[in-house]
Computed example of a mutant assay.
Amino acid sequence: MATANHSRSNSFPSQSHPAIESVEDHLCRLRADSKSIFVISNLASLTNLHEGINDLIQMPSIQQTLSQGNWINELLEGSLKLVDLCAISREIVSLTKESVQDLESSIRRNKTKTATSSDIGAYVASRKQIAKMVNKSIKNLKSFNHKSTIDNELWRMMKEAESHDLSVLKSVLILLSGENEKSSKTSWSLLSKFTSTQNSRVNSESGAEDLSSLNIQKSTKNIDSKNLLKQLKSSEMTIQEIEEGLESLFRSLVKTRVSLLNVLSL
């Protein structure tokens, strides 16, 4: 243990180093927001965190620590799983947006006061497929290794970042399923907190996302087309912001993984 601590003190930069402070600052913010349901802002925080981690990995002293550690392969394995999870989340959000847009188009094309049963049926079928993908992805989170006896400051930060990644991406998946993490409601509802396009933008920007309006029961009849279109449009705007947040995070995760792989070639 003394040897490990000595190695860490020689190769790991001072805690006052700007790159270290930047990463620690982002981690502190994510710790403070650990109970937050504000998915969009948390995605942005994760992107900033990984940009800081990528800058950190570019430092010669950090590269030396990584190249000497026999645990870099585990970091690479974790980074690959995160990239895959984020990619799947992007696919799910894309399918969600597509199903919403298809229903919107059908309602406008039919020009009826109430949504037709065939339109609702097709939409519900697509939502069921998306729900299966979400459940499978959440189950796969168990494959991540959360236990370690490694005593290294860089390792601690990387594993904490991974933990935040998993937590936020899980929240994204739950949100896209139309469920609410706090209430854990299981019934499919047409209710929505978004009463207008303007309110939707305000709620979305503040992080108060709610996509419960995505889940519609097939047995529901006489749904007012005008109100349904408003709800779907509001949800679509939030979905778009989540999609943009996931895209930025995905690029940052890939960049971090490439930086780790480059260390192996040194």
Rank of each mutant, 00 (worst) to 15 (best):
V23W: 00
E74P: 01
V100T: 07
I40C: 12
N199W: 06
L141E: 08
L246W: 10
S196A: 14
H164W: 01
W155F: 00
S99P: 00
M158P: 04
I150H: 06
I88D: 11
C28R: 04
K128C: 13
E209A: 12
N70M: 02
I92P: 13
H6I: 14
S126C: 06
N48Q: 02
E162S: 12
N73S: 12
S79H: 04
K255Q: 13
L249H: 03
R109F: 04
K182F: 15
L103Q: 06
T3D: 02
G178V: 10
L80H: 03
R90E: 10
S225F: 06
E244H: 01
N145P: 10
L95Q: 07
F12R: 01
L75M: 10
I57F: 09
Q231P: 13
N227E: 11
E77T: 11
G245Y: 12
S7K: 02
T220F: 03
D102H: 00
K170L: 01
S34L: 02
N110V: 02
T96I: 10
S204V: 10
N262I: 01
K132A: 14
F194Q: 09
V39D: 10
Q217F: 00
S118N: 02
R156S: 10
I62S: 15
M237E: 09
L264E: 03
L76E: 07
I88Q: 08
T112C: 01
V134F: 06
S16N: 09
E91Q: 11
Q101N: 09
D210T: 13
K139T: 01
L190Y: 11
L175G: 05
Q231F: 10
K226A: 14
I138C: 02
S143R: 04
D102C: 04
L27N: 02
